[in-house]
C-alpha cells in the first residue's frame, strides 16, 4: 500500500467512526440507566448497559402515548404527501399544460423557506377549528414539508418510465387509468415507497411545528423537548435513542433509492 492509499483508507474509516461513534455513545447513555449517567470517568464498553433502562423509560407516563402520536402523525403525513403529490408528479411528467411553470415555481418556492415556522400562525387557526393538539393537525403541517419533495420525486419517477410503455398498453386495449394502474404504477412503486418512507422520517423527526401544535397529545419529539429541562440525563439519552433507531432502520431500507431520489429533485 502506498502512503496515499493509507491516507485514503484511514480517511474513510475516520469519517465512518465520526458518524457511528455518537450513535453508539447515545445508545450507551440510553441503555446505561441512572448509574451510567453519573459515572466518572465513563466506560466506553457497554458494561453497564441493559434493556431495563429503556423499559423504565418507556413506562414513564406520556412516553408511550407520545410515541403512538408520532407514529400516527408520521403515518398520516406519509399517506397525505403521496396521495396529493403523486398525481401532481404524474401531471408534470406526462402533460404539457399552461401554468406548468408557475406550478413548478410554487413547489420550488417552498424550499426557500423553513416551512415548519409556518406552524406558528396555524396554531391560532387550529385552535379555532379543533385541529390543535391532534396528530392529524401535526400531520397536516408535516405534509406541507414533505409534499414538495413528493411532487418532484414522483414527477421524475414517472418521467423515467418511457411513455411508450403506456402507449403500448393503450394500443393493446387498456384504458387511460388501466394503463396507469397496470403498467406505470408497478414500475414506480419502489420509488414511491421510498418517497413514503422519507415523508415518514421527515414527520418523525420534526420538532418545532410538533411542539407548537400539541400540548397533551404530544408527539415524541415535542414530548422530549417539553420535558428536556426537568428530566434526568439518562431519560434524555433514552429518548434520543428512541428517536434515532427507526431513522437508522429507514435509511437502511431506502439506501438504494437515496441518491436517485435526491438527484432527481435537483434537476
Amino acid at each position: 500500500m502506498t502512503a496515499r492509499r493509507v491516507l485514503y483508507v484511514s480517511g474513510v474509516l475516520v469519517l465512518c467512526a465520526w458518524v457511528l461513534v455518537p450513535i453508539y455513545l447515545i445508545a450507551l447513555g440510553g441503555l446505561g440507566g441512572r448509574l451510567g449517567v453519573f459515572r466518572w470517568p465513563k466506560e466506553f464498553l457497554p458494561t453497564g448497559a441493559s434493556v431495563d433502562a429503556m423499559l423504565t423509560f418507556l413506562q414513564i407516563e406520556g412516553v408511550w402515548n407520545a410515541a403512538k402520536n408520532s407514529v400516527i402523525a408520521a403515518g398520516l403525513t406519509m399517506v397525505f404527501s403521496v396521495v396529493l403529490g403523486a398525481p401532481a408528479g404524474y401531471a408534470l411528467a406526462r402533460f404539457a399544460f399552461r401554468g406548468q411553470d408557475a406550478y413548478r415555481l410554487l413547489v420550488l418556492l417552498t424550499r426557500a423557506f423553513p416551512l415548519a415556522i409556518l406552524a406558528l400562525p396555524l396554531t391560532v387557526t387550529f385552535i379555532r377549528v379543533g385541529l390543535y393538539d391532534t396528530p392529524l393537525g401535526v400531520a397536516l403541517v408535516h405534509t406541507a414539508l414533505a409534499l414538495p419533495f413528493a411532487v418532484l420525486v414522483s414527477a421524475s419517477l414517472f418521467m423515467g418510465i418511457p411513455r411508450e410503455y403506456e402507449e403500448a398498453a393503450w394500443v393493446f386495449g387498456c384504458s387511460g387509468p388501466g394503463a396507469f394502474l397496470r403498467i406505470v404504477l408497478p414500475l414506480a412503486l419502489p420509488g414511491l415507497a421510498a418517497t413514503c418512507i422519507f415523508a415518514f422520517v421527515i414527520s418523525w423527526n420534526e420538532v418545532f411545528a410538533a411542539s407548537l401544535l400539541t400540548v397533551r397529545e404530544r408527539t415524541l419529539t415535542a414530548y422530549l423537548l417539553a420535558v428536556l429541562a426537568e428530566s434526568p440525563p439518562h431519560f434524555r439519552y433514552a429518548g434520543g435513542l428512541l428517536l434515532v433507531v427507526p431513522s437508522v432502520v429507514f435509511i437502511f431500507a431506502v439506501r438504494k433509492y437515496l441518491f436517485s431520489l435526491w438527484g432527481i429533485t435537483n434537476r
Binding site: 447515545i26 423527526n205 423537548l225 434520543g240 428517536l243
Partner: peptide, 10 residues
C-alpha cells in the same frame, strides 16, 4: 434520518 433533537442529545 436523524432529527436535530436526537443529534443534540447524542
Amino acid at each position: 434520518g436523524i432529527s436535530d433533537l436526537a443529534a443534540g442529545l447524542a
